[in-house]
Every structure is written in C-alpha cells, then in structure tokens.
C-alpha cells in the first residue's frame, strides 16, 4: 500500500511540476492544486497506514484495543486541506483579477511592477 501511495505522490508531483513550469498562470494554479494534494498524501502516508482499524475506543475501555490507525496525520491533513482550499480560492480570484486588469495570463508578460530596462530584450517566445 505504501509503495502504491508513494508512486501516486510521485506522479502527482511530476504532473504538478510540469504544469507549474508553464507560462500560463492557469496551468500554474492547477499544478499548485496537484502538488498541495501530493503534500497532503505525503503526510498521510508518512503517518503509517493501518487498514480497516478506525481509532475508536470501545465502550468500557480507556484505550483502543490492538493496533488502530493513527488519527493525528488525518487531523493534520484535514487542517492542511482547509487552509489549502482557502489559499487556492484566493489565488484563483487573484489570477482572474490579473487577467482582467493586466489582460494576460502569461507570466512573462506581467511586467507592470518590474518594467523592462532600456537595454533588456523582450521576453523569449
């Protein structure tokens, strides 16, 4: 199971890096979503996987009987998902604003804050 998840994380990261290297900011955003999910899966997997044993304490006992799944990584992932969702919503809105005010989604053409120097060539195409 770990190997399978590790492979999935690898594929996610590879796809994310490919997308994030694009000049188009929309692709970059999609890459960001993929890589943040890869990070969440990393936490989940690193916290050890236990199949079919939810971390519940049976009635009348003080501790769960036998080996149960680790609840902490799940709590961490849940927090990270919520935060990641908020940030992603903001980033998406920002990219939309960038598209409407700057008229482009090409990262290389966004040079309002850092205008080209007189001797500097135009961006590579």
């Amino acid at each position: 199971m770990e190997a399978l998840l590790a492979l999935a994380i690898g594929v996610l990261v590879a796809a994310a890096v490919y997308l994030m290297l694009a000049r188009n900011l929309l692709r970059f955003i999609f890459g960001l979503v993929l890589i943040s999910n890869a990070a969440n899966l990393t936490i989940f997997t690193a916290g050890r996987l236990v199949e079919g044993a939810p971390p519940l304490v049976p009635v009348g006992l003080d501790a769960p009987a036998g080996t149960v799944a680790n609840a902490l990584p799940q709590a961490l992932v849940l927090t990270a998902i919520v935060i990641g969702f908020g940030l992603f919503a903001f980033a998406l809105t920002l990219m939309f604003r960038a598209y409407t005010t700057l008229g482009t989604l090409n990262g290389d053409e966004m040079r309002v804050a850092e205008p080209r120097e007189p001797g500097e060539g135009s961006a590579m195409r």
Binding site: S36, L87, F90, L94, M95, T101
Partner: peptide, 13 residues
C-alpha cells in the same frame, strides 16, 4: 496585482 501574482505563487510553493 502584478507583484501579488509573483508573491502569492512563490510563497505558496
């Protein structure tokens, strides 16, 4: 907005 895009992108990575 221009500066914000770069700030947001790199900080999120």
């Amino acid at each position: 907005i221009d500066g914000g895009v770069k700030y947001v992108a790199l900080n999120m990575i």
